[in-house]
Amino acid sequence: MIGIVYYGAGNIFSLTAALDRLGLQYGMIKTAEDFEQYDRYIIPGVGHAGSAMQKLNDTGLVPSILALKKPVLGICVGMQLLTLHSEEGDSKLTGIIPLETKLFSDELQVKVPHTGWNKVFRTVESPLFNEIPQGSHFYFVHSYFIEFNSTFTIALAEYGIKFSAVIQKDNFYGVQFHPEKSGLAGEQLLKNFAHLA
């Protein structure tokens, strides 16, 4: 059963609606004790990474998150929170995965926010990608991205620069796109996460 870290950063209605459609059970995590009830976790998030981190810090849940040994999936800003630092508001983040979150700069000559369906290519095999064809489109909407890294990037996307579409370190996963809004491919990824060993 999936525990959703409930910290007030953004709309989780769409996420829970997707889990409902897929018949995946979930509950909300509001206190440190709540983690024990679940065997995997989602950290959602939209909006400003700095204010999201502030809200997460305010819940007091960060030490419990850092100690998790079961699968964790950060979505969009929830993924960025796993990194060390974001250029958005020059914000210090959890640092679970030693990467930087950066702005799509003017020199890349792309429109920002990166909005729409972008091809995603896995760079390693992972059960998270079961039944998802290489090069499937996922729905992105973000102005900041996580740099490509040959150790922690497990799927990449190209938009003026190659960046991390999916990152992983041990049991911590992050996806920059919104699987709950990414059609059948996104639903498959959520199912895969729900069944990760």
């Binding site: 972008n118 760079t123 990449l156 620069i161 190659k162």
Partner: peptide, 22 residues
């Protein structure tokens, strides 16, 4: 299934925007 992994890891990180669908 084709696997462009190795191409990506060693290539220049400047990329096109053509992977964003209309």
């Amino acid at each position: 299934m084709d696997n462009p992994v190795l191409n990506y890891k060693n290539s220049d990180l400047t990329a096109s925007v053509n992977d964003l669908a209309k």
